[in-house]
């Protein structure tokens, strides 16, 4: 499958610079993107080797293309996707957030929803590639604008189980290891490495 990155072979990298404690936003035109404890830190790519730099670029690009601002936070005290996403939604000026785990599992959340609910969930991390992350970002931004985006089509693959189920469990356990209890979420800035011009 063609991805927007095929013409840019040099792999982009990202480092996350901590800015300070994450705060509740007031801008109605922002989406908070919440990263799991090991995202772009202990881990550098998803379960199917999509670089975290690319995941983040595409999520943020999807949001920016809709004219909405992305704000990044890192959640450190849990690796539960629903919790990560819900914390972010509560901090988002628009009430909309995107939460993402290191292995790629992603969720769009909204502040008024119950924690275990969500607007859109992408549970099959092996099936998420760069274009899907772009669409997720775009949809989150559209929700923030009060529009009605068509849900990102979810895919399914019966043979994902034999190939990825155990690795997913392993990545999940590793992410758990990176949890820093009692440390609140921090606001971060993404600094992209080589390959970018902007």
């Amino acid at each position: 499958m063609t991805t927007p990155t095929t013409t840019a072979p040099p792999e982009r990298t990202v480092t996350l610079r901590e800015i300070g404690p994450a705060r509740r936003g007031t801008r109605p035109d922002e989406v908070v993107v919440a990263l799991s404890p090991a995202f772009a830190g202990h881990f550098s790519k998803t379960i199917v080797d999509v670089p975290h730099a690319e995941v983040l670029r595409q999520l943020m690009a999807g949001i920016e293309e809709q004219g909405v601002t992305a704000r990044l936070i890192r959640v450190r005290d849990t690796a539960d996707l629903a919790a990560i996403s819900h914390i972010a939604a509560k901090m988002s000026g628009s009430g909309i957030s995107v939460g993402i785990l290191s292995r790629g599992t992603t969720m769009i959340h909204q502040k008024d929803l119950a924690r275990l609910s969500n607007l859109e969930l992408f549970p099959q991390s092996p099936l998420l590639d760069a274009p899907v992350f772009r669409m997720i970002g775009s949809n989150a931004a559209q929700y923030a604008k009060g529009e009605s985006p068509q849900p990102v089509p979810t895919r399914n693959d019966q043979m994902a189980r034999p190939r990825w189920q155990a690795k997913a469990a392993l990545l999940h356990l590793k992410e758990f290891e990176c949890i820093e209890a009692d440390r609140g979420p921090v606001e971060v800035e993404a600094v992209f490495g080589p390959g970018t011009a902007g």
Binding site: P162, R163, K167, A169, L170, L173
Partner: peptide
């Protein structure tokens, strides 16, 4: 070789 295999991690129950 399309199947996935992982190393054990007994401390975590894997």
């Amino acid at each position: 070789n399309l199947d996935g295999f992982v190393e054990e991690w007994p401390e975590k129950g894997l």
